[in-house]
Structures are given as structure tokens and as C-alpha cells.
């Protein structure tokens, strides 16, 4: 449904994205993760026909985004990051106007249906300028869903929503993603873990990693990490622990906590425990620590940044 090959975009002398390649199929929710300025919005704007790429090709629903932009725009529902809305219109008038532009035949029925989906039926006659940030976000989402697009492109769809609304919107996107293609960007890694079938991590304009959240976590935690806490003198343990066979790194944390990274398949816990006791330190805790998607994200983006 979305096919991107070698997509590159320059803003003057600055390269915003470089050689981006990915695809998203029908019935898939793909998460775009990356720090600010990584190139997420630029990629999404190219896919929606808002701006052309400098190089590369992108096809959405079988149409080239540059050559057949109008066809692409007919098939894409887009929620821009800043959720731009016409403040002088009521929610219903705005949806009817957008429905007209998208040639929705039963526009009143569709407007009512999407308002129900985003739980804004009681705000249909409210002026948009009088809505809260969360409500504006939901109006933007309603607009993106209005013409039942084959592809939904959502730039930070849950930003500004309260926890209950976030849960509802995530459930809604997940539901929509069963039948359509959803490409969403987010800073919230837990969100990507919960909603996405696949995750693309983008940094400095390049895709660093593309995989399922589960695979990503498994691949990057194969080395294993241990967290241990002692009563005092944690710093004195650093050289001792580093000398243990199978330990690849030791970092000092807060409150006498140490994070030990180990080689894949090595069992070093008994040796660590003995070494701590031998140093006359009171061992309070020793546990296997999982690596969250957040850790993976930070690790990948930090290493990419370091290379540049």
C-alpha cells in the first residue's frame, strides 16, 4: 500500500532525509519513531503530496505521489502534526467542508459517524476556536477518517490527549489498522509497542532500524543486562566486575546501583555475587534487566548521532 524507495529531501543545503526505503501493507500499523528533526514529518509530507522529494520514489495505494498526486490525496487521510483547523467554523461545518473536498457522497452521515468515533457528537455545533487542545486533536483525526481512506498518515496522533482519550484513540487506530494501512509517528515508545505491527526508527534523516517491536527487543537484548544494588561503595566494584569473564561493560547508576552488560549466553550472576561479597559489600539486589524499546531507541539514535 505504501512503497518508498530511495526517498531523499533537501532543504537548501541541509539534507532532511536520505535514501529512505520502507513499505507498509494493507492491514498494517507502522510506527515511525525518531527524535525531533529526524525526518518523520518530512517523509509524511512527501507521502501526502504536500511537498515533492528531491530524489527517490514513493507510491501510495498504487499511485506515484509526485506524478499522480491527486489520486494519492483522494486515498490518504492525513493528520498533520500541528492539527491546523479553521477556527471560525463549527466542528460540523468544518467536517462538511472537508467532506465536500473529498467528494464524500453522504457527507452528513459520514460526519456524524466520525464524530461518534472520536466522541465529539455533542460538540458538533461548537466553534473550533472554543475547543480544547485534545478536542482539536480529535477533530483533526475525524477529518482524516472522514472519507474512509485506504491509507491513514497520522503525525503524532495522541499528542495533547488525556490518558483516557489516548487509550480510546489507540484502540481506534488499532481497529482501523486491521483493514487499512496506518503510518503514524510518535515520540511515545510504549505507544508504538502497543499499536504497531512494525516500527521504523529514523534518525538524522535515515532509517536506522525496521522490525517488529518484539523482534527489535529480542535482537538487542540478546547480550543481556544485569542490575545490581549494594548498600555502599558501588564505585569500588567497577574494576572488579569488569574483570569477570563474560562481562562486557559496567556502568555506575544512582543509589549504589550498577548496570552490568554481558555477552550473549553467559551466566555471570554467581561470580558477580561472589565478587561483591569478597569486596565486603552488602549485596541488596541482583536481577536480570530487560531492555525496553526506549533503551533500544536511545541506544540506536545515540550511536547514529555519534557516528556523524
Amino acid at each position: 500500500m505504501i512503497q518508498v524507495q530511495g526517498l531523499t529531501k533537501d532543504y537548501g543545503a541541509r539534507r532532511a532525509i536520505e535514501d529512505i526505503n520502507f513499505h507498509a501493507d494493507k492491514g498494517e500499523v507502522v510506527g515511525f519513531l525518531g527524535p525531533n528533526g529526524a525526518g518523520k514529518t518530512t517523509t509524511m509530507r512527501i507521502l501526502t503530496g504536500y511537498m515533492p522529494a528531491t530524489a527517490g520514489t514513493a507510491r501510495v495505494a498504487g499511485y506515484d505521489v509526485m506524478e499522480e498526486s491527486l489520486e494519492v490525496r483522494r486515498r490518504v487521510g492525513y493528520l498533520p502534526e500541528s492539527v491546523p483547523l479553521y477556527n471560525d467554523m463549527t466542528v460540523l461545518d468544518y467536517l462538511l467542508f472537508m467532506a465536500d473536498l473529498h467528494e464524500v457522497t453522504e457527507r452528513y452521515e459520514r460526519a456524524e459517524a466520525v464524530l461518534e468515533q472520536v466522541q465529539l457528537v455533542d460538540r458538533a455545533e461548537t466553534l473550533i476556536q472554543n475547543l480544547s487542545k485534545g478536542m482539536r486533536q480529535r477533530v483533526g483525526l475525524a477529518q482524516a477518517l472522514l472519507h474512509e481512506p485506504e491509507v491513514l498518515i497520522l503525525d503524532e496522533p495522541t499528542i495533547g490527549l488525556d490518558p483516557a482519550q489516548i487509550r480510546e484513540v489507540r484502540a481506534l487506530i488499532k481497529e482501523i489498522g486491521k483493514e487499512r494501512t496506518v503510518l503514524l509517528s510518535t515520540h511515545i515508545l510504549a505507544e508504538a509497542q502497543q499499536m504497531c505491527n512494525r516500527v521504523l526508527i529514523i534518525n538524522n534523516g535515515r532509517i536506522v532500524v525496521e522490525d517488529t517491536p518484539a523482534n527489535l527487543e529480542a535482537a538487542l537484548t540478546s547480550g543481556g543486562r544485569l542490575t545490581l544494588r549494594v548498600k555502599a561503595k558501588a564505585k569500588s566494584l567497577l574494576p572488579v566486575l569488569k574483570d569477570i569473564k563474560g562481562v562486557t561493560g559496567v556502568e555506575l547508576g544512582a543509589d549504589n546501583e550498577l548496570v552490568v552488560t554481558t555477552k550473549a549466553g553467559s551466566e555471570v550472576r554467581p561470580e558477580i555475587a561472589r565478587a561483591v561479597v569478597a569486596q565486603n559489600c552488602d549485596l541488596l539486589e541482583l536481577r536480570q534487566a530487560g531492555m525496553s524499546l526506549e533503551d533500544i531507541f536511545l541506544q540506536l539514535t545515540a550511536s547514529e548521532g555519534g557516528e556523524e
Binding site: 503530496g49 504536500y50 491527486l70 490525496r73 483522494r74 500541528s82 491546523p84 473536498l101 477529518q143
Partner: peptide, 14 residues
């Protein structure tokens, strides 16, 4: 200024 141009330029309108 308000960013709504992004809505128009991504709608199926030339």
C-alpha cells in the same frame, strides 16, 4: 500562517 494551507494542499484539489 495558521498552517491550514497544509490541509488544502493535501486535499484532492489542484
Amino acid at each position: 500562517r495558521q498552517g491550514t494551507i497544509e490541509l488544502l494542499l493535501t486535499a484532492p484539489v489542484n
